[in-house]
Design a binder for these strands. Structure first.
Lengths: 348, 348
DNA sequence: TTGTAAGCGTTATCAC
DNA sequence: GTGATAACGCTTACAA
């Protein structure tokens, strides 16, 4: 059953090194030998032991993805499979595999990051979020772990990153709502220590201020990236004496929570409350009403992150890089704008 | 930067074997030695090389997931992250990690399966689908790869599996539509060589036949598990002179495609066409109209599959097992049934 | 063109 | 309790 390189060598009447050379397509090996060896490999159903190879090559041809355990139920956010799809595509093009580190009981993200890389199971790591003063980035740096982070790190020049221009993106959504006549606009964001939350809040604020509207702290809410937080945020906003007429949510899942809460409390969307989201997940166009959302090209974020990491692995001397991925507002009914016929707006 | 067991041993003034024993919490090691060694480990920021350990232990403490490349865009179906979440939970409870095998250019599923396991990168494999005469099962068997398949294999006693009673589940949905008065009911399924498609078709047929309705082949459509196939299926059904008044889709994504097509062609749901799906993905309750769907406990499917595999790895002599996971019909508006107030039906 | 031998970082089997 | 030593299966100088 389990044949190894020696078995193959023996049966082919050559040495293990020859077999190894055949495996690595070494050019200076005779055609006959090569063919004979290959035949034996097939006969014995031989598969090279990747673990042994990793040990000697000091490389596993594998990319690690650190799934944060601070973000509750990260896997449940449709952002994840899409970013994974992007990563997987780049990885497989380069012949790399993917290793997932899910929250191991008792280990924090930093320990898992260090362990995954220092244990040599992966050649590099993709981090899925960036926080203010993110300890993960320090750990990556201190341990010399090739790393790419999806999201902008707050300290420049520590790791390579891929991100959207989140400030501009949030500015654009907010401006859109302002153009529609809204003057009191709420903001429902993710965790406050996520850079993405701060950036989007900054863009939201800038849009308001440019029109001479003062940002009202009562209109700001932040929670985790799940539906429940969106609900809570909306309930809070609706309880205000001077409630907003529109809400910018920093994530589609938050937006859905917000819409659900508003609906349950008897408000119509978009007539009584306009809502917008971020990510443009598939659900957005099928929701009731279809959700206006900022498409941030999640697939491309993943794809680019993996590409950057692979380039770094191939040429470690390469300078760190930051790449900004485009965004694009997809207008549907939830924001109250006229949705043109034939547009990407649900049932058309 | 990269310290190994020898460095630790040297600094602690002991032999590598002692360090190894400390690592594995071997009881016959003196407290003082143990503590001294641990301190050095911390000082040197030592992390054991998992690759070297795997090599000698002949085990990687890793579960492999084979993502089929025949099912186009598998990652895009919300089924995937949910089943992954279940697998991840069981795996991490047992201290196992997860390795993803995505479609590598040029390698078919079978080659990837053999490679992943025989290369010793993973201790066992979870297959995400079962086909008629599935070559993957033979490969797993021939290579002695510990395997659990999600879905019922057609040949009993080859691998352990986790599945729903798909025949009964489809019977239940179809019966529900029949109870609502429908007599011509279409069926839109996934690929024809998937056991799950056949099982659900069988359940659908049985329900009709029990009420004396002959199954009309014109009402059957099968494609892949993506929205486009659902669209095409619905278009075909609507083009029939004697079109159905309801459709059972074998997947929520198919159902959404079907609903979209019907909507675009001017049919109202559920008034002109009732639609039901399978999986009860999060999108289902937020769609327009909310989708009636068969909840098959996808999370539990993943969780149980991983649990079975882990048990098999722990005790290889264990008999193969098959486990059936419960299903439950979630009635919403798309099937035209009265959705009770306060039920799980969207905006309530 | 091919073979020999050392070594990748662990763990396991003996000794003592 | 602890230390040599031999694997685990492969790659890669260095020889031939």
């Amino acid at each position: 059953m389990g044949s190894n390189i020696k078995d193959v060598a023996l049966r082919a009447g050559v040495s293990p090194s020859t077999v190894s050379r055949v495996l690595s397509k070494n050019p200076r090996i005779s055609k006959e030998t090569s063919e004979r060896v290959r035949e034996v490999m097939r006969d014995l159903n031989y598969h090279p032991n990747a673990v042994a190879r990793s040990l000697v090559k000091q490389s596993s041809q594998t990319l690690g993805i650190l799934i944060p355990n601070t973000i509750e139920q990260f896997l449940q956010n449709p952002f994840f499979p899409e970013v994974l799809r992007g990563i997987a595509q780049s990885a497989q093009n380069a012949g790399y595999d993917i290793f997932l580190s899910t929250a191991l009981h008792g280990l924090d993200d930093g320990q898992r990051l260090a362990q995954m890389a220092r244990s040599k199971r992966v050649d590099g790591v993709i981090l899925l979020t960036a926080r203010v003063h993110d300890p993960l980035l320090d750990i990556a740096l201190d341990n010399g772990i090739p790393t790419v982070v999806i999201g902008r790190p707050d300290a420049e020049g520590t790791v390579s990153w891929v991100d959207n221009d989140n400030k501009k993106a949030a500015y654009d959504v907010t401006a859109h709502l302002l153009d529609l006549g809204h003057r009191r606009i709420g903001f429902i964001g993710g965790a406050q220590d996520l850079i993405v939350t701060l950036d989007r809040l900054a863009g939201y604020s800038q849009a308001l201020e440019e029109r001479g509207i003062v940002v009202d702290p009562h209109l700001l809410y932040s929670g985790e990236f799940h539906e429940e937080a969106g609900c809570q945020g909306m309930v809070r906003l609706l309880a205000l004496a001077d409630r907003p007429s529109a809400v910018v949510a920093s994530d589609d899942v938050l937006a859905f929570g917000a819409m659900r809460a508003a609906g349950e409390l008897g408000y119509r969307i978009p007539e009584d409350m306009a809502v917008t989201g971020f990510n443009d997940i598939p659900l957005a166009k099928l929701a009731n009403p279809p959700l206006t959302s900022m498409n941030v090209n999640v697939f491309e974020l993943g794809q680019t992150a993996a590409r950057l990491l692979l380039e770094q692995l191939a040429s470690p001397q390469l300078a760190l890089r930051g790449i900004t991925v485009e965004h694009r507002l997809v207008v549907r009914r939830s924001c109250g704008a006229w949705a043109p016929f034939g547009s990407d707006s649900g049932w058309g």
